[in-house]
Simulated assay, not measured.
Amino acid sequence: MSIGNSPESPEDDRNFPADDRDSIGRALQQARVAAGLTVEEVSASTRVRVPIVHAIEEDDFSRCGGDVYARGHIRTLARAVGLDPAPLIEQYDAEHGGRPAPTPAAPLFEAERIRPEPRRPNWTAAMVAAIVAVVGFVGFTMFNGNDVRGNGAVAEGPAPAPKGSASVKPKPAKPAPKPAPSESAIAAVPQDKVTVKLTAVDDKSWISAKAHDGKLLFDGLLLAGESKTFQDDERVDLILGNAGPIELYVNGKKVQDTFESGQVERLSYTKGDPEAG
């Protein structure tokens, strides 16, 4: 008889992970590094504070303020670095006791509706309206009678056209000429603004766009086939997390770039011909 726990004791299974997946924090950290982003840049784009981003990348979710906020932070950070948040949320639920059951709604009791008292007819207003109608009818009748007696002229219709004269048909108006299609959807851009159009051709890319005063115009994923257009009075600053699939138009002209897939580009454009800053 052996003394102690058996080699196949269930307690030994607790020391081994359920699978060989990376932890949530490590997956987010690796995706961020691959996208060429710093913790400060991710914090600025997601509005998640820098200490919380560091803690999540170390798999410390105690600073999130609860499971609901932790799920929200994981979903936001995953989208910012180009990951699908659904598997990470499932992994978090599996490691933290599953998703909490929804709280049943309290039973609703319909209050007894109070029937309004029937409104009594306003006889005074009805009598006034009837008197006004009678006076108006009498005045109208008297006016028409005087007009018929004082004017003996009979209204005549238009004179018939003389025989033998052909009726002249009005010429149909010429249709307005259709505008010629432009070479680009943003060819007629305003000259006093900076206009930047980005299109993800065949792959997704993380995009960050800011105005000249630092105002964030857009921050997130641009999926394949989607387009975004940004304008500013002076300058538009861009960060492309995956610049390869991006087709770029600046001030109505296509930028002939040599971007590669997975390459991070920081660009700045002003009015006039596009020039990368």
Rank of each mutant, 00 (worst) to 15 (best):
P245Y: 09
P104S: 09
R49K: 12
A200R: 07
D257C: 00
V33L: 15
H73N: 11
F137C: 15
S165R: 15
G139Q: 08
T270W: 01
K178M: 07
H54S: 11
E234I: 03
E247W: 14
D219P: 02
F143P: 04
R26F: 11
H73I: 08
A173K: 13
R149C: 06
T76Y: 02
A35T: 09
A129W: 01
D203G: 14
I239K: 10
G65T: 05
D233H: 06
A276Q: 08
L238W: 04
L217F: 09
G225L: 04
D147C: 04
R99V: 13
R235G: 00
S268Q: 13
E57P: 03
R32A: 03
I74C: 10
L223G: 02
R14H: 12
E41H: 08
T229Q: 11
V33S: 09
L77A: 14
G277R: 12
G36C: 01
A106P: 05
V148P: 08
E265I: 01
P51L: 00
L248Q: 08
Q256K: 15
I246W: 10
G145A: 14
Q256T: 12
P85D: 09
R47I: 04
G225S: 03
T229K: 12
S45K: 04
F16D: 10
P107R: 06
D22M: 07
A111K: 09
K197C: 11
D273S: 09
R235H: 05
V48F: 04
N144G: 14
G252V: 10
A86R: 08
S227G: 02
R113V: 14
T76P: 00
A200M: 13
V135F: 08
P175S: 07
K169Y: 07
F259I: 06
S45M: 13
A78E: 10
A133Y: 02
V39W: 03
L88R: 09
S208E: 15
P100W: 05
Q91Y: 07
P245Q: 01
A200N: 06
L238A: 06
S6A: 15
Q29C: 02
P245M: 07
G97S: 02
V42P: 04
